[in-house]
Amino acid sequence: MTDMTLPAQADSRASAANKQSVLEGLRTRDRAFFWLTRLSALLVLAILGGIIVSLVIGAWPAIKAFGFNFLTVQRWAPNAQPEPILGGLGPIYGTLVSSLIAMAIAVPVGLGIAIFLTELCPQKLRQPIATAVELLAGIPSIIYGMWGFFVLGPFLAEHFQPFMIKTFENVPVLQDVFKGPASNLSLFNASLVLAIMVLPFITSVARDVFLTVPPVLKEAAYGVGCTTWEVMRNVVLPYTRVGVIGGVMLALGRALGETMAVTFVIGNSFKISPSIFAPSTTISAAIASEFAEASDVHQSALILLGLLLFVLTFFVLAIARLLLMRAERRSGA
C-alpha cells in the first residue's frame, strides 16, 4: 500500500507545482493583455496631446513674431522686405463664412431629406435612398474638388452668378454681397461644394434621432388632425431638437476643416471681399497650397493657422458630442 501511495503523492505534488506554474503563466499573459489594451486606450489621449504640443511648438515662432496682431491683420506677404508680414484674418474669415453659408444650404436640405425618409418615402425605397445619400460621404474630398472645379464652377459662373448679380444690382447691401464679376473660383462655390459634402452627416443624424420619437406622440398629433408638416414642426422637431443641433454641429466641424475640395474651388486669395462671388481662402486651403514650399516664419504662421483651426473645430465638435450624448441619454431613458 505504502509503496503505491508514495509515487502517487509525489506525482500529485509535482502536478500541483506544475498547475501552479501554468496558472502563473496564464495570469502573466492576462496581465500583459490588460496592459496592452490599456496602453492602446491611453494612446488615444496621447495622440490628442501630441497634436496640440507639436502644433504649439511649430507655431511658436509665429506667435512670438506677430502675437495677437495675427488675428487682426489681413495682409499676407511672406516675401515682404525686410520682414515678412503675415496676418491670418483672411483665411479665418474665409473659413467661418464659407462654413456658415454651407450650413445655411445644407441644414434645410439635409433635414428635408430626413423628413422625406422618415415620413413620406415608401418603405421599400428608404434603405436604398438613405444608403445613396450616405455614399456621398464616402467620396474622397479631392473628387469633390475636381468636380467643383471642372463642372460646378463653370456652371455657376455662367448661369447662377450672373443671375444673382443682376437681380440684386440695385438693392442696398445685397448688391455688395452679390457683386460681380462672376468667377469660376469663389467663396460661394466653395460653400456649395461644402454643403454637398456635409449633407450626409446632417441627414443621417437627423434620421436617426427622428426614429427615436415614440410613435404614440406622432399618432396622437395625427389623431387630432395635424398635417405631416405640423407633426414634424410641433412634435418631432421639438422632441429631437438636441440631437438635430448635435448633428448640425458635427457637420459644421467637418465643414470648417475640409481641405482638398475647398482648395480646388476657392481661388486662394487672402484679400477679404464683401462679395461672396469673389475668390477667398480658408485656413486648410492656405495650408494645403503653401505649406510644402514655405519655410521659417511663413511655415510657422501656417502652423499657427492650423492650431487655430484645430482649437475651433475641437470646440465645435465637443459641443456636438455633448449634445448628441444628451440626446442619446434621453432616448435611452
Binding site: I47, I287, T313, F314
Partner: peptide, 13 residues
C-alpha cells in the same frame, strides 16, 4: 473628436 478632426491637421502633426 479625433474621428472628425480635420485631416490636414493630422498632416501638420
Amino acid at each position: 473628436i479625433l474621428l472628425s478632426a480635420p485631416s490636414i491637421i493630422i498632416g501638420l502633426f
